[in-house]
């Protein structure tokens, strides 16, 4: 089935099996393998990408549902020579080990700070009507869909705090 994805600012026409997930479209068809397959069941967050500005698990979404959508993957955030501030903060704070969950963590982290800035409430907010703040607890709660088995959480929290401009 023919579709058009707008990936990292480029229009990418594709002809896909209706069963192909957005994740497999990115990895196997567009060879954008920065987006990782950890579980393929929406349980780990390694496949997190931004679709029209919102983070989603790309393994839980069929590619054909995204005809015309704007998709930002880890490759669209920055490159080794020109890192996005969140990527640079992950390097500085060693917010990763094996690196496999890392692209998903970074896409989520970028989206989390944007969600907090937009005032999207969360489960750990004491006052749901107040504007959320980028506290350690708040960020940890919102990042909990992204598993890191190497256990870099403490460092990821510090990387995010630096980008958010708050004390870790």
């Amino acid at each position: 089935m023919p579709i058009m994805l707008k990936v990292n600012g480029q229009s990418r026409p594709l002809s896909l099996d209706t069963r192909t997930t957005l994740l497999d479209a990115l990895r196997e068809h567009l060879h954008l393998t920065g987006t990782k397959k950890g579980c393929d069941h929406g349980q780990c967050g390694a496949c997190t990408v931004l679709v029209n500005g919102r983070r989603i698990n790309s393994c839980l979404s069929l590619a054909i549902m995204h005809d015309g959508d704007e998709i930002t993957t880890i490759e669209g955030l920055g490159t080794p020579d020109k890192l996005h501030p969140m990527q640079a903060a992950f390097v500085k704070h060693d917010g990763y080990q094996c690196g496999y969950c890392t692209p998903g963590q970074i896409c989520s982290a970028v989206a989390v700070l944007e969600e907090i800035a937009r005032g999207v409430p969360s489960h750990v907010q004491e006052d749901l009507t107040a504007a959320p703040r980028a506290t350690n607890l708040e960020m940890r709660e919102r990042m909990s869909g992204n598993i890191c088995r190497c256990g870099a959480y403490s460092n990821i929290a510090e990387a995010m705090a630096e980008v958010a401009g708050v004390a870790g």
Binding site: R27, L32, T33, G34, T35, K36, K37, T73, I74, E75, L77, G78, T79, P80, D81, L83, Q87, A88, F90, V91, K92, D94, Y96, G99, Y100, T102, P103, I106
Partner: peptide
């Protein structure tokens, strides 16, 4: 020191088995 493979891992350009 920062990891020398950090820029690759954080940009999705480190290549894992299936890739």
């Amino acid at each position: 020191v920062d990891r020398i493979d950090g820029p690759l891992k954080t940009t999705g350009t480190a290549t894992y088995a299936y890739e």
